[in-house]
Design a protein around this nucleic acid. Sequence first.
DNA 1: ACCTGAACACCGTTCAAGT
DNA 2: ACCTGAACACCGTTCAAGT
Lengths: 245, 245
Amino acid sequence: MAEQRRVYASGDRVGATVRSGTRRRSAERLSVDRIVAVAIDQMRTHGYDAVTMRSIARELGTGPASLYAHVANRAELDQLVVGRVCALWEIPDPDPERWDAQLRECLISLLGILRAHPGVARCTMGMIPVERGMLAVVERLIGLLKAGEVPDQYIAWFVDVSSLFVGSVAAEEDIWRERMADIGEAPSEEETVVEVREVFSELPVAEFPLLSGMAEAMTTGTGDERFEFGVDVLISGLKALSAAR
Amino acid sequence: MAEQRRVYASGDRVGATVRSGTRRRSAERLSVDRIVAVAIDQMRTHGYDAVTMRSIARELGTGPASLYAHVANRAELDQLVVGRVCALWEIPDPDPERWDAQLRECLISLLGILRAHPGVARCTMGMIPVERGMLAVVERLIGLLKAGEVPDQYIAWFVDVSSLFVGSVAAEEDIWRERMADIGEAPSEEETVVEVREVFSELPVAEFPLLSGMAEAMTTGTGDERFEFGVDVLISGLKALSAAR
DNA sequence: ACCTGAACACCGTTCAAGT
DNA sequence: ACCTGAACACCGTTCAAGT
């Protein structure tokens, strides 16, 4: 099943999966909504790289040219995908007593949303949040930081830095996940850790006196723990800088 | 000249630039070094997306198939490119008196190196640093953090988080730079800021009470200032967490 | 051992023509 | 207005054949 869609070594395009019967006829009319929905769905089931204008058109029972009546190009489609998914991000009303804990929960829940929609994080890189739905989220995030009495300039930069961080972590996880799927076996996080740890501990001590002694630390912790450490560093840092005026 | 290599709306591949006379004959033999050098050079001059196995082969006066005798595939080539460029990263001997300032300078200089090699940052996403040259750099970075008496676990995670941050900022800048070049005019950072600021200040106050009042802060600061804020947040956060055990 | 031509199975986008 | 077939100018990778 994982192999079913392999065409050549590293290219796994949805088109190779004919999935007879799954191909819808052009019964319903095309729309931006349907196109975006198919894109998100294909990213989840086949990975970011497998989604192309052609694969989307195929699933909608038409040719790639038809999509261009609804979306300008692939870049715009990616924008719409991110907008649709980020609209799921819920940010609570600010509580000045625990704005920092709220902020922490928000960043963690954003990663959760991106994880629940594999591939979507890959669309976020280099995106300026001008899409309407995204601005609504930024608005609420600002509310949280205002409750913490963070200076305006720091608020603006922190929104930038923290969303870049969450997006990058999600995109990186996504690349790994796809690479694993490509190799085929998906060697259960446990095994990979053991392998990588071996590489580190077998490093020549003379050349790598510090690194070779840190094989344990370098490979300890799940993705969640590493990510949450990053979030804690960011929030502690923000509080320290804000306190120092 | 900027238009010279445009073929269709958003695809600008090196091959379209025939640059008669520039195409080398296969006088010298192929080698991994020459292939990597051409890749880095083309990323700088034509942008990340323009570099393909075919464009590299063309510049070397041969066909794409010839490259596969020296590199396994495009992914491996990207690894080699990052390795070559990161080898330029110099990390000082640790001074316990000012390890934090040293760390700050290091992260800033890494961004400088990635900026000096446009396109290369795009190869770093999702890369596990197992390449030998990269481990040497990590070794020295660890030395710096040990001088700051950061716990081993935090050292490991911080190397991860901070390099992801620098790489992401560089990759994001790169995407913007290419998009600007695509549009053609490259509207002088000044103009873009003015335009984006207008978008923010024209937001309906009822719907965006906070954001509409922050147009100034949202658009203030150069890329450098925003990046250095991020670095300061990371280092302050690390120090706060380390102090709290 | 190293290199090549030709082929395979794909891309995103455009455009004239249809309904 | 919306959709389509066919074409254009590309991709990465493989492979049998050459030197």
